[in-house]
């Protein structure tokens, strides 16, 4: 390279570098650095004659090996690759790199400080993560009941479609429990809404604990809950209902003796079953339980 060219390259406000094969053709060696490489990117003059990889951070060397070098050898160039230079003191400096392959397999590199670009990119990534998290949260909120954390009615309806279809294919029975808190209005009126809320929250936890993982426990309305049980016959559904009557006695919230009225129904394997029908049947059975004096379960009967 002529002296005058060297001189003029030193005036450019961008890093210029040339790398060549070493004499054995084993390694890429830095053969030229312009002044910007020293002054702005902090590469020591002594880097000339050393391996190319040495000026990059460890992570950048992996990108260099798996992406940049194959790209240069294959396409003859690379454009706008972000890498980190590692300076002698261990400081990292983000750079935007372009490179072009020469006739004698030498590579011409330019690199420019990309601090602001990197900051902007970080901002972009942060924003993307934030939006993704918000979308997840909204998705979560749209399917759960705020107070109890159980799935809401809309989500129950959505999942029921899948479960009904699966059960039909597998010829499994589905059971459904409609659960209503007895005298909930009195609790709210006499003890206040905070206590009423506490009843609903604790009852929800109890329902989740007693139900199996595959069951769907839903807050259906005010003090009404639904448990949808895939692959469950009437016998197993009644046994869950019995466990609920037993365990609800253990709940101690402000001296209330909490009891439940439960309607139970099971799909009829010989007939077409609609989810809305099952809901209606369980609801009817639940009102029958109320009518018989509450604190009991009634199994829907088709007669």
């Amino acid at each position: 390279m002529s002296h005058s060219l060297k001189h003029s390259l030193d005036l450019f406000p961008i890093g210029c570098m040339i790398s060549v094969d070493d004499t054995q053709g084993n390694q890429r060696i830095i053969s030229y650095l312009n002044r910007y490489m020293h002054d702005e990117l902090g590469i020591a003059c002594a880097a000339v004659g050393k391996p190319l990889a040495d000026i990059f951070s460890k992570a950048s060397r992996i990108i260099l090996d798996t992406y940049v070098m194959p790209l240069i050898l294959h396409e003859g160039q690379c454009v706008e690759v972000m890498l980190d230079i590692e300076q002698a003191d261990g400081n990292k400096m983000p750079v935007s790199v372009n490179a072009r392959l020469g006739d004698k397999r030498e590579i011409y590199w330019t690199m420019a400080v990309a601090d602001r670009q990197k900051q902007l990119h970080h901002k972009l990534l942060e924003t993307r993560d934030l939006l993704e998290n918000k979308a997840k949260l909204l998705q979560q909120q749209s399917i759960t009941d705020d107070l109890t954390g159980l799935v809401n009615r809309r989500e129950l309806n959505r999942q029921s479609t899948v479960i009904m279809a699966q059960s039909k294919r597998a010829n499994w029975p589905i059971s459904l429990l409609m659960i209503d808190v007895d005298y909930f209005k009195q609790i709210n009126d006499s003890k206040g809404h905070d206590v009423g809320d506490e009843v609903l929250i604790q009852l929800s936890q109890l329902l989740l604990k007693q139900a199996r993982a595959s069951d769907i426990v839903c807050r259906f309305g005010g003090e009404e809950f639904v448990i949808l049980m895939p692959a469950t016959d009437s016998h197993a559904a009644q046994s869950l209902a019995r466990r609920l009557h037993e365990s609800v006695k253990m709940l101690k919230i402000s001296d209330i003796d909490l009891t439940l009225s439960i309607g139970i129904t099971t799909s009829d394997l010989t007939k077409q079953n609609l989810f809305s029908d099952l809901l209606k049947q369980a609801d009817e059975a639940m009102y029958e339980a109320k009518g018989q004096g509450r604190n009991r379960s009634v199994v829907f009967s088709r007669s």
Binding site: S57, K58, A59, S60, I62, I63, T66, Y67, P70, L71, C78, V79, E80, V81, M82, L83, D84, K92, K118, H121, L125
Partner: peptide
């Protein structure tokens, strides 16, 4: 750093991953 660099170069990186 490596994950960040993958992110910074994502437009080209994944298409030309060797």
């Amino acid at each position: 750093d490596l994950i960040t660099l993958m992110d910074s170069n994502f437009i080209g990186w994944a298409n030309y991953l060797s």
